[in-house]
Simulated assay, not measured.
Amino acid sequence: MAASRAELAFECSAGSRRRDCALRHFRLSPQQIFFVQRGFRGLIMMGIKRAALAAMAAFTIAGSAQAALVEYVQNGGFENLSLINSGTWGAAGSSVAAGNYQIGDLSDQGAILGGTGGVTPTGWSTSGYNFVFQANTADSAATGALTNFSGGTGPDDRFSLNGPGQAVNPVNNGFVGESPAGGAFLVMDSNLVDTSGIGNLTLPISQQLTGLTAGNMYKVSFYWAAAQQYGFTGETFEGFRVGLGDSVIPTNSGPNEQFDDTEANIENLPACSFCRDTGFVVNPDQGFTDWQKVDFYFTASNSTQVLSFLATGGPQGQPPFSLLDGISVTDAPEPATWAMMLIGFGAVGGALRRRGGKLLPTQRPALAA
């Protein structure tokens, strides 16, 4: 005898699933209901497989795009050095043996030795109180770089950093003499004003990038850390300002014009709409903060742009130094790639959610003999 509407309502209110309740309106036996449910599960699983394939395709496309990325930076690891002026070292553009140097044509190792050839990392432009160091040599006065503030060539005339490698007064501050990128790296003073009338010596390093597309987004990646000069004490704070635009990061050029002994140089820098700031890390007395990786995203305004880095921090008297390495500029993932990946993830998540919420496992009903 067919079940009455009252009986169906009672059966549905006794804990039956809504799908089973609806199927009973079609007068289906338990065996028939089981086969219908199995068909539903097959359709859902097909949807999950298709969604998973879509997500895998998105991953494949993203991976192919990653493999085909163009690198726009030359010598992002500061491994290659060259002369920027003709002099006793050789002609401009010739290579320099790997070593530790103060860079730029304002003051360099060549000036101390009576030469006139300025040293710079190939592809980059800079001056001021900036240095390039080979791996695992920066915390040794014996292998430090000669500076324009000294008059000789001995260990006491060389710039180096506090660390365990110093022969005299070593500091176990955890100094790591190379970034995860390995090899040479840059050391930049973040708060130095020259008082002899030359001008501000805290200046950016820059490189002109070509082949960009106006309106496209680019990822600027780099490693940086904070350290202090050997022979100095006191807590400092360091950071970087990064720019990708039509010009180098703007600074004040006059002597004693940019900052005083107690503040960060960034507080008085001109406004920069195309710049990003890492923020500061606090570096304890004679300390070192480990290397960290940063990714910034910029939109190019022209096919040619200037990438520049300026060390920021303070106070002036300690002095603070910011370390830089592993600079890379690549195309950011296209919006279409992100969209495909999101669609794939969303499809998988939606299918799994439907499966978990509505297709709970059921026991197979006993078939009639």
Results as ranks from 00 to 15, higher is better:
4 S>Y: 06
10 F>W: 08
11 E>M: 06
15 G>A: 13
20 D>T: 03
21 C>R: 02
23 L>N: 05
25 H>P: 01
27 R>N: 14
27 R>M: 09
29 S>M: 03
31 Q>L: 11
33 I>H: 00
35 F>G: 01
40 F>M: 02
44 I>F: 05
46 M>L: 15
51 A>H: 03
53 L>D: 09
54 A>S: 09
59 F>M: 09
60 T>L: 10
62 A>V: 10
64 S>A: 13
65 A>P: 05
66 Q>T: 02
66 Q>C: 02
68 A>G: 11
69 L>E: 07
70 V>E: 15
74 Q>T: 10
78 F>Q: 05
80 N>A: 04
81 L>I: 04
83 L>P: 00
85 N>W: 01
86 S>D: 15
88 T>V: 03
90 G>L: 03
91 A>T: 14
93 G>P: 05
94 S>D: 03
99 G>T: 02
101 Y>D: 08
101 Y>P: 09
102 Q>T: 15
103 I>P: 11
103 I>H: 13
109 Q>K: 00
110 G>F: 00
111 A>T: 01
113 L>H: 15
119 V>L: 01
120 T>Q: 09
124 W>Y: 07
126 T>S: 04
127 S>D: 07
132 V>Y: 13
135 A>Q: 08
137 T>Q: 07
142 A>W: 12
145 A>N: 14
145 A>M: 12
146 L>N: 01
148 N>P: 03
149 F>G: 03
150 S>T: 12
150 S>D: 06
152 G>M: 05
153 T>S: 10
154 G>H: 07
157 D>M: 04
157 D>I: 02
159 F>L: 15
160 S>K: 11
162 N>R: 09
165 G>E: 09
174 G>P: 05
177 G>A: 00
179 S>T: 06
179 S>L: 07
181 A>Q: 08
184 A>C: 07
189 D>A: 13
191 N>W: 01
197 G>W: 09
203 L>P: 00
203 L>E: 12
204 P>A: 10
209 L>C: 05
213 T>A: 12
213 T>E: 14
215 G>M: 14
216 N>Y: 11
216 N>V: 04
218 Y>N: 08
225 A>S: 14
228 Q>A: 13
229 Q>E: 15
229 Q>W: 15
231 G>F: 07
232 F>M: 14
234 G>M: 08
236 T>D: 12
238 E>R: 13
239 G>F: 02
242 V>Q: 08
252 N>D: 03
252 N>G: 06
257 E>Y: 08
258 Q>Y: 06
263 E>V: 00
265 N>E: 00
266 I>A: 14
267 E>Y: 12
270 P>V: 15
271 A>K: 01
275 C>N: 03
277 D>C: 06
277 D>E: 12
278 T>W: 02
285 D>F: 11
286 Q>F: 10
291 W>G: 07
291 W>P: 06
292 Q>H: 12
295 D>Q: 09
295 D>V: 04
296 F>C: 13
298 F>G: 10
299 T>I: 15
299 T>E: 15
300 A>T: 09
308 S>K: 06
312 T>A: 12
313 G>T: 04
313 G>E: 03
315 P>S: 08
318 Q>F: 04
325 D>H: 13
333 P>A: 12
335 P>V: 14
336 A>Y: 11
339 A>Y: 05
342 L>K: 05
344 G>A: 04
347 A>K: 12
348 V>T: 06
348 V>Q: 09
354 R>H: 05
355 R>E: 08
